[in-house]
């Protein structure tokens, strides 16, 4: 799985590509933890358009990151989730903590291109 991270002031956009399991979860957690050490992140946008799979390890990584960002008053949004990925997100209840959008919000993403 590939991961592209861009930061604009206190907002971070993580573009994920591939399958979000234990392998990717650890990579994502490590990267965000490192960024949080340097400077608080107010907003984290996860571009899920190219994520074709997620399991509980992937969900666990998102929850872990959510707790850390929420503790400093920030929030997370997930964009472009595919239907079968969204089904797992909703089943887990993560949609009550994180805003999930099925369609990519181009106006937001354009800022980071």
């Amino acid at each position: 799985m590939d991961m592209e991270v861009k930061q604009l002031r206190n907002t971070v956009v993580v573009k994920l590509d591939g399958e979000m399991d234990m392998l990717m979860a650890e990579k994502l957690k490590k990267d965000i933890d490192q960024r949080l050490l340097n400077k608080p992140i107010a907003n984290l946008i996860i571009d899920m358009e190219k994520v074709t799979f997620i399991d509980s390890s992937g969900l666990g990584a998102i929850i872990g990151i959510y707790k850390k960002i929420n503790a400093v008053g920030g929030g997370i949004a997930m964009l472009g989730t595919q239907p079968h990925v969204k089904k797992v997100l909703v089943f887990s209840g993560i949609d009550k903590l994180v805003n999930i959008y099925s369609n990519e919000c181009d106006d937001i993403m354009d800022e980071f291109r």
Partner: peptide, 19 residues
Amino acid sequence: LDDIEEIKLVVSEAVSNSI
């Protein structure tokens, strides 16, 4: 395809548990 996605998910969970 939904069936296959769900099967892949449960296998991922079982193997992750083992690891």
